[in-house]
Design a binder for these strands. Sequence first.
DNA 1: AAGACGTGGAT
DNA 2: TATCCAAGTCT
Length: 301
Amino acid sequence: MLQQTQVTTVIPYWKRWMRTLPTLQKLARAKPARILKLWEGLGYYSRARNLQSAAQKIVTEHAGIFPNEPEQIRELPGVGRYTTGAISSIAFGQAEPIVDGNIVRILTRIFGIQQNPKEKKTQEKIWQLAQTLVSAAKDCSSLNQSLMELGATVCHPSQPECENCPVARSCAAKREKNTHLIPARGKPIRYEDKEIKVYLLAHNGKILLQQRPEGITNAGFWELPNNETGPEITLPKRARPITSAKHNITKYRIKLNAYSIKPGPFKGRWFTFSDLRKFPVSAAHRKILKFLEPHVSRTIE
DNA sequence: AAGACGTGGAT
DNA sequence: TATCCAAGTCT
């Protein structure tokens, strides 16, 4: 859950997840839709699918016992170099290094590394430093967590609080007033705005939703019919316009048209708003639906 | 190697 | 509002 996600965002999800799926066996056997619902709103949903696959792998290949060898941990789906080190050092107390966004910032600044940390060569250098530090540590778990915590609370991306930094006197970036240049940034990836037409078809307080197919972004979520995942909708004459609007949601620009219409030959499933509490709906469509709810209630005859 | 993957917090 | 970034991984 913590991969590319802030701790404060994760905490309520983690509590709910652990309450619902407290054991590896329950996670392994859970329905995918339940997993998706528990993860709803966190993003990067392959993490959730991978986590269940990992649980299943542990049940079938490790007799249900979480492996403690880094090589075996690394084989679990969704577990990369960072997570392997985090589990090995924090859960099992082993001297394995970790490098997350915080530690990249800490180490490049302290050691004055000006190369772009995205480059493979630079990455290897940073991992090597992390390895050296954790190898010398008395408490590997605390060392790794302390480095991350220092990055999160003091060594901010911009305007680091060097006055409050316990290792300020060892920091090359502070000494050379380089903290705004280190770590170096590559060119950011640009995403094009997409314009999507979304339709609200409502009748008697129910709305038509469709499920996103496997293999695409936000697979499995229920959402309003739209021309991204389905064909352009041709509306029957009996459709009555209710409202229309434009929304900017993340990288999407959404044109929205809402109609009051009797159930007809449409693909999908009709939901009341209270039905939706049990079904996964993407964050973008949650926002749209919140805006539309008052209009839907007016379609009740 | 470069890009996709999601969403929300912070500036 | 725009941009960056978050306890990264996979292709």
